[in-house]
Amino acid sequence: MKIFFKKICRIRHLHDDANDGKSIRPRGSNQAMRKFRLAARKQENRVSRMSTTLSPVAYDGKIEGNVIFTQLDAAINWMRSHSLWPMPMGLACCAIELMAASSSRFDISRFGAEVMRFSPRQADVMIVAGTVTYKMALAVKRIWDQMPEPKWCIAMGACASSGGMYRSYAVLQGIDHLIPVDVYVSGCPPRPEALLDGLMKLQAKIMKEHSVTEQKKELLENL
């Protein structure tokens, strides 16, 4: 488990390096370089510890070989959180930033969420990006209802979160009046980094979920 995470972290660092690492990597003395490496390792450790809160993994490659012991919850959550297929519910200008987030500069695929599905039946997370008018609200609800469980929702931007500057007869004052929202992203519109941060928050949230509670209940009832 841990090794997987480290791999992912490394891949992510590589990506970061490919994008803008050149600008942040110090060019100066060896000491500065060592400091930078230390900070990078700390960051890596922090991420891997955060990701395994539910998986007390004791993995030693010399003893177990290719076998990994972990909890089912942790494994399922790990798989879920790293392949979130979004349903892009683009309703206004936030959708432009959503498009930017999935384009090359910001590259939402680094976080496993690049597969934008325009069919709700294949989507995991609905990103409500933009002003939800009352006329559109029930269509959003209907698409949400068509998404299979488990599903999550990100309210992107001021309008989707609270109605934003549209205090009027025509605008729903926040999509949370209709569907449950997991992460709110502030901004008008939020920058793509903010959306990526929201996505990472959602991943952290998914890692803390108990993913097989229903199945456990069913099993106990059958017994």
Binding site: Y134, K135, Y166, R167, S168, Y169, V171, Q173, H177
Partner: peptide, 9 residues
Amino acid sequence: VAFSEPAPL
């Protein structure tokens, strides 16, 4: 069909 509520001004 539809619904609406007064917005908080």
